[in-house]
Design a protein around this nucleic acid. Structure first.
Lengths: 249, 249
DNA sequence: GGTAAAGTGAGTACGGCGTACTCAGTTTTT
DNA sequence: AAAAACTGAGTACGCCGTACTCACTTTACC
């Protein structure tokens, strides 16, 4: 036990011995490439090692197990939330909105990210930069740190939840049949049988009226995000005062 | 191919042949019992069959594969969102709030539910009842069906996202060390090393100021939910008019 | 009441997985 | 020169999902 049981505390280069033949970043990149192309399930230690041109068990010199591979992937991808060149807007709500949209774009580009990140707390360097950035946006508007964390947590909860449902929908369509029509027909016949009982008036309306005005996934995402930010803003203390009507506790 | 490739359309009792020795409901219950006690990973076809006192391959008479086991579990658990005895409140926001709280309570009782349900669209009978109920709450306030779906989707996105992060936190604490102190120390030493660079002023404040006022997970959940519902309400068309300032498109 | 359908537990098998362990050999720092 | 830490290769264990067969029992229909 060297005392470094945390991935991010462990030095990447050993004190002595030969130079490792690839880097953590390369490992993360290779894993991300596989997951992007073939899904999360395609990642195995054997496959990853093969892609890196390494022996399977050599990976365990870089990483204590598969979980740390996932940690590396997550933190690398989370880095894409934050473009380094642009400074965040002055308005906190604008800043969080921008962050949310960048997060969504990243999670759509890496469909494995949202489901994977949802299940584990994040502690890597890019996650730290993200937290730093988000909290920085809220600095100076009269909130305590605890309140800031509650507020940011609410926004990210929505973002993660929305994107996961968006991805699940897309994934189901991609997997079963190719066409939307096929997929609907599959479930619709069951829903029709429910409607026939007469106990589902709203579902009946749904089958008849839904889809009249097509709402893009972008717009649905924007709707919830903007309502949430509106509601938060309405509850914040007005400028100069320390207590608002509904501040995040 | 009998034509019933949908689990819910397939008759539970065969037209001929002996009575199956257990029911779909019993299968779902057994799986839920395992997952509640030992986590989702503890569920395997072999284990599930053993618990049911059945041969492993006999399960495939009830279900086409493990995925359908999950579908059964999800739909059974989702049934707990909706207590049958109580009628929903007249106010739509009150109704959705209540539903959200019931969903959260159920997902905390079954920690495997949120991660599992997030990844797949739901099409079972209880999911249908849930959709029916949620849409019914929004009936008569001047929204189209598409708008209702967008609105409900936003609320559930938040609920799912929040609970998953809540569960991830709890899980990480349960798994690593038992105490909160241990877990914090593990990551804190890394965060301290970041702070030492001077580039993370907000993280520095966080380590010093966070936790002054303890915010219960319940309160944080309520905060985001209530802000979201507030924001939605503020955007809805006022009574009697058909166009509001920000209606869900 | 016979027949066909659909259930049953048991067993075998295949290919994949994470990961623990060994080994002989090489590279780098002290 | 010595020690540390890397390397690919190989072996092994115990899980997993699920496909397939077998001899059998139970039930519904004609």
């Amino acid at each position: 036990m060297t005392g470094h049981d945390n991935l991010w505390m462990r030095p990447e280069r050993p004190a002595r011995g030969p130079r490792p033949s690839f880097s953590r970043a390369a490992l993360a990149e290779a894993a991300i490439r596989i997951a992007d192309a073939e899904g999360l399930e395609a990642i195995s230690m054997r496959r990853l090692a093969a892609d890196l041109g390494a022996g399977t068990m050599s990976l365990y010199r870089y990483v204590t197990g598969k979980d740390e591979v996932f940690d590396l992937m997550i933190d690398t991808a989370v880095g894409e939330y934050l473009p380094e060149d642009r400074r965040p807007p002055d308005d906190w709500a604008e800043g969080l909105r921008l962050l949310a949209w960048q997060a969504r774009r990243t999670m759509l580009r890496h469909p494995w990210l949202a489901p994977l990140a949802a299940g584990r707390p994040q502690a890597g360097p890019n996650s730290a930069r993200l937290t730093e950035s988000a909290l920085g946006m809220l600095d100076g508007i009269g909130l305590s740190v605890d309140e800031m964390l509650t507020l940011v947590g609410a926004v990210f909860a929505y973002v993660h939840g929305y994107i996961q449902s968006e991805l699940a929908e897309a994934e189901a369509m991609r997997r079963l049949g190719l066409t939307l029509a096929q997929r609907l027909a599959r479930h619709l016949s069951y829903i029709q049988s429910l409607i026939a009982t007469g106990n589902y008036p709203m579902l009946e309306r749904m089958t008849k009226e839904a889809g009249r005005e097509y709402t893009a996934a972008d717009d649905r995402f924007a709707y919830g995000l903007d309502r949430l930010l509106d509601g938060i803003a309405a509850g914040l203390p007005p400028r100069g005062e320390t207590e608002g009507p509904v501040s995040p506790r």
